Simulated scan of single mutants.
Amino acid sequence: MAEIQLRNISKRWGSFIGVENFNLTITDREFLVLLGPSGCGKTTTMRMIAGLEEVTEGDIIIDGKRVNDLDPKDRDVAMVFQSYALYPNMNVYENIRFPLKVRRIPEDEHDTRVRRAAAMVELDDFLHRRPAELSGGQRQRVALARAIVREP
């Protein structure tokens, strides 16, 4: 993991201000929740950290390195979205494993990493099921395990 620093970041679209002069330090291994009303900038902030939105002003520092100009793939950040975006044709095991295949992680690591991530979110007994056979909370945990398995 790595420390993340947001230094005076802002995001504007014309005259509309999405985030203004925001400062935050998230220490290594710290768990942080962004909570606030709709439209206050939570998602925009996360998208800027991940590189999905450009920062209008300020700096994003990950592990001591300014990442404003890095592509999302080069930031090694994983996100879990409210709509889980699970693959309905794949079982839980394959949904969790998918990021390892895409990133070309050696196959001999897949089973151990998938099972470790599944255990962390208490899905050990559901690896054979498809998303349609899961509750909403279980689907959310599959999405979380899919982010964890990458070890971003």
Rank of each mutant, 00 (worst) to 15 (best):
residue 3 E to S: 12
residue 4 I to F: 00
residue 4 I to Q: 05
residue 4 I to R: 09
residue 4 I to L: 13
residue 5 Q to H: 11
residue 6 L to C: 10
residue 9 I to M: 11
residue 10 S to Q: 12
residue 11 K to H: 08
residue 12 R to K: 15
residue 15 S to H: 08
residue 16 F to R: 13
residue 16 F to C: 08
residue 17 I to T: 15
residue 18 G to N: 05
residue 18 G to F: 03
residue 18 G to W: 01
residue 21 N to K: 12
residue 21 N to T: 08
residue 25 T to A: 11
residue 25 T to I: 09
residue 26 I to S: 14
residue 28 D to G: 00
residue 30 E to P: 02
residue 30 E to D: 05
residue 30 E to Q: 15
residue 31 F to R: 09
residue 32 L to A: 08
residue 34 L to F: 14
residue 36 G to A: 11
residue 39 G to C: 05
residue 44 T to H: 05
residue 47 R to N: 15
residue 47 R to P: 00
residue 48 M to T: 09
residue 50 A to E: 07
residue 55 V to T: 14
residue 55 V to Q: 12
residue 59 D to S: 13
residue 60 I to M: 07
residue 63 D to V: 01
residue 65 K to I: 07
residue 65 K to S: 14
residue 65 K to Q: 15
residue 67 V to C: 08
residue 68 N to C: 08
residue 69 D to F: 03
residue 69 D to T: 10
residue 70 L to E: 13
residue 73 K to I: 04
residue 74 D to G: 01
residue 77 V to D: 01
residue 80 V to W: 02
residue 81 F to N: 06
residue 82 Q to N: 06
residue 82 Q to C: 05
residue 83 S to R: 13
residue 84 Y to G: 08
residue 86 L to T: 07
residue 88 P to M: 07
residue 90 M to G: 04
residue 94 E to N: 14
residue 95 N to R: 02
residue 97 R to C: 13
residue 98 F to Y: 14
residue 98 F to Q: 05
residue 98 F to W: 08
residue 99 P to D: 11
residue 99 P to T: 02
residue 106 P to V: 06
residue 106 P to Y: 07
residue 107 E to N: 10
residue 107 E to F: 05
residue 109 E to N: 10
residue 109 E to T: 10
residue 112 T to M: 11
residue 114 V to I: 03
residue 115 R to F: 07
residue 116 R to G: 06
residue 117 A to E: 05
residue 118 A to E: 06
residue 118 A to T: 01
residue 118 A to P: 01
residue 120 M to S: 04
residue 120 M to N: 04
residue 127 L to K: 07
residue 130 R to Q: 15
residue 131 P to Q: 09
residue 132 A to M: 11
residue 133 E to N: 08
residue 133 E to S: 09
residue 136 G to H: 06
residue 136 G to Y: 02
residue 136 G to D: 06
residue 137 G to Y: 09
residue 137 G to I: 08
residue 138 Q to H: 09
residue 141 R to V: 02
residue 144 L to C: 14
residue 144 L to K: 09
residue 144 L to N: 07
residue 144 L to I: 15
residue 144 L to Y: 01
residue 145 A to Y: 00
residue 145 A to D: 04
residue 147 A to I: 00
residue 148 I to E: 02
residue 149 V to S: 12
residue 150 R to K: 13
